[in-house]
């Protein structure tokens, strides 16, 4: 049973790379913490895509399993991070991440 496509592995990797870099770019340019988290999700998806692609290359389930672990990680991260966002919005009355710089050395 195949979907009968024939894509070079590099192409999928390039797609994952581009998505990852878009996410990284987003993290770097945005000051709003919600957008940063959103970009982070994008980066994680790109990683998952690379894993699934590598798994598909050998027709093994391991790639998908790694994707599921990333999924669990993302879910945990989002739960805590959004809790922090809510706290940040309350304490500083802003979502500007540059304002929350009290943890500097």
């Amino acid at each position: 049973m195949t979907t009968a496509i024939n894509i070079p592995l590099e192409h999928v990797f390039f797609l994952a790379l581009i998505l990852f870099l878009i996410g990284a770019f987003g993290v770097l340019i945005r000051r709003n913490i919600i957008f940063m988290l959103l970009s982070l999700e994008l980066m994680m998806n790109a990683c998952g895509l690379a894993f699934v692609a590598a798994g598909a290359r050998w027709a093994e389930p391991d790639g998908q399993i790694m994707f599921m672990f990333i999924l669990a990680l993302a879910a945990a991260e989002v739960a805590v991070a959004l809790g922090l966002v809510v706290q940040l919005a309350r304490r500083f009355e802003t979502l500007d991440i540059d304002r929350a710089e009290e943890l500097n050395g």
């Binding site: 993290v27 540059d98 710089e101 050395g105």
Partner: peptide, 10 residues
Amino acid sequence: LSMFQTGHIR
């Protein structure tokens, strides 16, 4: 080293 620790996440 602590000069690098600015508190700016970006």
